[in-house]
């Protein structure tokens, strides 16, 4: 069962992660409400635990946004105060006491994943298209045309995982998140490394 733990106190998040993982939960962390909303819309967690007072976007606003967008999976509030917001499935009192937390978490079960139907013909067609994109990326890296390069990387991030190329999506995501902080003189080297990794992925 996987959980998203949204909490701005990094130490508390680390402690929760250690305890929950001991009991077999897979824990992902978000450091504020904004990240929690983005994560919840990107991945289907079995359960979200949401702190109320968080920077950027607080837990109440975050759960309201998710519920407005039809998010119907359980979200638990964590707070020292009373929480009356109807979007939460449950409220856990802070400070969290592990035996109590464990007891409450036991009410929730892992939600079976729905497999995406991917006909072989469509998968093969996309994978051939991905090969063409790698070739285009090679040329764009050579020209150091980073705007077009990153547009294609963005496309790969958003689509490759749906066509049995999850690693390519993950590599593209990693490159996108690092890109702004890479010094100009190192961009070509990093781009080539990304391409080498993509090409090494075994296409089915």
């Amino acid at each position: 069962m996987n959980l998203l733990f949204a909490e701005d106190d990094a130490l508390l998040a680390q402690l929760f992660q250690l305890q929950a993982e001991t009991f077999g939960y897979q824990v992902f962390c978000a450091q504020n409400g904004d990240v929690a909303v983005q994560q919840a819309l990107s991945y289907q967690y079995d359960l979200i635990l949401m702190d109320i007072q968080m920077p950027v976007l607080d837990g109440i606003e975050a759960v309201r946004m998710l519920r407005t967008l039809g998010y119907d999976r359980p979200v638990i509030a964590m707070s020292a105060e009373d929480v009356t917001e109807p979007g939460f499935s449950l409220v856990l009192k802070k400070p969290l006491q592990w035996p109590d937390v464990q007891q409450q978490l036991a009410q929730f079960k892992a939600i079976p994943a729905v497999k995406l139907e991917l006909p072989a013909e469509l998968r093969n067609a996309y994978q051939a298209h991905a090969q063409q994109l790698f070739h285009q990326l090679d040329m764009l890296a050579e020209q150091q045309n980073w705007i077009d390069f990153m547009t294609i990387v963005h496309q790969l991030k958003g689509s490759a995982a749906s066509f049995d190329l999850a690693i390519v999506s993950e590599l593209a995501h990693q490159l996108q998140s690092e890109w702004q902080s890479i010094p100009a003189e190192q961009k070509k080297q990093r781009a080539n490394y990304f391409l080498e990794q993509c090409k090494a992925c075994k296409l089915k």
Partner: peptide, 27 residues
């Protein structure tokens, strides 16, 4: 392909019913 707080807020304010961040999954 990416969700930003601004995009999500604008979508809600303009009447979107839901928001999916790609890649698509069955869930």
């Amino acid at each position: 392909g990416v969700s930003t707080l601004e995009n999500v807020k604008t979508s809600i304010d303009s009447g979107a019913a839901s928001f999916i961040v790609k890649p698509f999954t069955g869930d």
